[in-house]
Amino acid sequence: MADIQIVREFKVSPERLFRAVTEQAEILNWWGHDGWTIPAQNLDFSQVGPWHSEMFGQDGTRYKLSGQVTHVTPPRSVGFTWGWHDDDDRRGQESHVTFTVETTQDGARLILDHRDLPGDDVAGRHETGWTKGPMLRLERYLAG
């Protein structure tokens, strides 16, 4: 198993950052990658329970994820399971994601821990995916 950690700092309050990473109306502004559409989703990370996201890349490739929100501790952390679906809609191996929000001198820090990935190659792809997609989009979204 492999784990990744990504840390970003934002010039917003911890409460604002927590809303951005837990409330569906906010998440839809940064989830996925530039140019992707998200026609089907339940991306409410503000309460314990199931979530899912079906996205389409610019080339029409389908990306489907689902899991369970396992804990919500406002404005400090939210955790959820994560599993990709294949073309036959079978859910693959489960990993775990935690967003932790900390107060900084200038605002707030987001620590993204993605754990239990099935190997270094998969962890590397997830780190690239998070960094070049959602985390970059979240930075732009919160910068206004």
Score class of each variant (00 low, 15 high):
His71Lys: 11
Asp44Cys: 06
Leu136Val: 08
Pro134Ala: 14
His85Cys: 13
Ile6Phe: 07
Gly92Asn: 09
Ser77Gln: 14
Asp44Gln: 05
Ala40Tyr: 12
Ala25Leu: 08
Pro39Leu: 09
Glu23Asn: 08
Arg91Val: 13
Phe99Ile: 06
Asp89Val: 09
Ile27Arg: 02
Thr61Val: 04
Arg90Asn: 15
Asp3Ser: 12
Gln5Phe: 05
Arg16Ala: 10
Gly79Ser: 15
Pro118Trp: 07
Arg125Thr: 09
Pro14Cys: 11
Ile6Ala: 03
Ile4Trp: 00
Glu139Arg: 13
Pro75Arg: 07
Thr131Trp: 09
Glu26Cys: 08
Asp88Lys: 15
Gln68Tyr: 07
Ile111Lys: 03
Pro39Asn: 13
Ala2Ser: 15
Gln5Asn: 11
Met55Leu: 11
Gly60Thr: 06
Arg8Phe: 02
Thr37Arg: 08
Thr22Lys: 02
Arg125Ala: 10
Leu17Gly: 02
Thr73Asp: 14
Leu28His: 06
Thr81Gln: 05
His33Lys: 12
His71Asp: 13
Glu15Phe: 01
Arg8Trp: 04
Asp44Ser: 12
Thr98Ser: 03
Ala143Phe: 01
Val7Tyr: 04
Gly119Ile: 07
Arg16Asp: 01
Lys132Tyr: 12
Gly49Phe: 06
Arg8Lys: 15
Asp87Ile: 07
Trp30Thr: 00
Gln41Ala: 15
Gly32Thr: 10
Val101Pro: 02
Gly83Cys: 11
Val7Ile: 15
Val72Arg: 04
Pro74Leu: 07
Leu136Pro: 02
His85Tyr: 13
Leu138Cys: 05
Gln93His: 12
Thr128Trp: 12
Ile111Arg: 13
Arg140Cys: 00
His33Val: 09
Thr131Gln: 01
Gly79Ala: 06
Met55His: 01
Leu110His: 00
Ala2Val: 03
Val48Cys: 07
Trp84Ile: 05
Pro74Phe: 10
Ser77Glu: 15
Ser46Glu: 05
Pro75His: 03
Arg90Asp: 13
Gln24Ile: 02
Glu127Gly: 04
Ile4Cys: 02
Arg140Ser: 14
Asp120Cys: 04
Leu110Gly: 00
Thr100Asn: 11
Ala40Ile: 08
Thr22Ser: 07
Ala20Trp: 01
Trp130Glu: 00
Thr73Lys: 08
Gly60Val: 00
Phe80Glu: 03
Asp87Pro: 01
Met1Gly: 13
Lys132Pro: 01
Gln41Phe: 10
Gln41Pro: 04
Pro118His: 03
His126Leu: 10
Ile6Lys: 09
Lys132Gln: 13
Gln47Cys: 07
Gly119Phe: 00
Pro134Phe: 05
Gly60Gln: 11
Gly60Leu: 05
Ser95Thr: 12
